[in-house]
């Protein structure tokens, strides 16, 4: 790992029951196989003492039971894991998902704003957003909410000044260099481009969340007819 100049990787205290393993200083697809490898090694090395793992763009938060494994011992184990870490290329490809998406102003009210901001036409915004294969960098904010990137630089638009109180479920959205789809109705400040038919979080499904860290995602434009036929909700924003 190339971290000599930044002091990475390093361990930071995250309370009595946690260590933050900081591996990288910037968001990069190339981080994923390292994070995957560390996640798997932690599961093996901590066993029953492992309480939770929270991977994100550049870090892995390791939460353990301090009564089963002292914070000092947990630190030593993590130092050992990091010392000879090799990227897990087996999992580097990630599962591939295609999310059928109806891009339309009625369900993606920020299409004009994004177009104006980027200097592209609405059609070009849609083409640009659906052309990229995104990687899932982290899940958070809400169950099954996947932060994906990196978005084409031309579509980089700031969040809304005032977040919406209720973003409809399955809304496809962008903010900064990231994109996401809302698994549930929540408040949200991202720019809405359309709506997908994918079931993003389903507690009756094995694994619960459709998307996992490291997965590859492509948004596939569909017309309204196809969207409806696949069970998509066409209720416009105003009525929601």
């Amino acid at each position: 790992m190339s971290g000599a100049l930044t002091g990475l990787p390093r361990l930071e205290s995250a309370g009595l029951d946690g260590w933050m393993v900081r591996l990288f200083s910037r968001i990069d697809e190339a981080n994923l196989p390292w994070l995957t490898a560390l996640t798997r090694r932690c599961e093996a090395a901590f066993g029953d003492a492992l309480v939770d793992l929270v991977p994100s763009y550049t870090t892995l938060l390791v939460v353990f039971d301090p009564l089963r494994l002292s914070p000092d011992e947990a630190q030593r184990r993590l130092q050992g894991l990091i010392a000879d870490l090799v990227p897990d290329d087996a999992g580097a490809d990630g599962a591939i998902h295609e999310l059928p998406t109806w891009y339309d102003e009625r369900v993606g009210p920020d299409l004009p704003r994004v177009a104006e901001h980027s200097g592209l036409s609405v059609e070009e915004v849609i083409a640009c957003h659906s052309a990229t294969e995104y990687r899932v960098f982290a899940l958070g904010f809400a169950p099954g909410f996947a932060f994906m990137g990196l978005l084409d630089e031309r579509l980089e638009v700031p969040r809304l000044d005032t977040p919406r109180q209720r973003v409809p479920v399955n809304s496809v959205a962008i903010a900064g260099r990231q994109t996401a789809a809302y698994p549930a109705v929540t408040p949200g400040g991202w720019n809405l481009l359309g709506r997908t038919t994918a079931r993003l979080f389903d507690r009756d499904r094995e694994g619960f969340s459709l998307l996992a860290v490291g997965d590859r995602v492509r948004f596939v434009p569909v017309d309204r007819e196809t969207f409806e036929a696949r069970g998509g909700d066409v209720t416009p924003m105003e009525a929601g």
Binding site: A14, G15, D17, G18, M20, R26, I27, V54, P55, S56, Y57, T58, T59, L60, L61, V63, A138, G140, F147
Partner: peptide, 10 residues
Amino acid sequence: LISEGIGLGA
């Protein structure tokens, strides 16, 4: 920061 995991009591 770049978003990262948050523990209880952070």
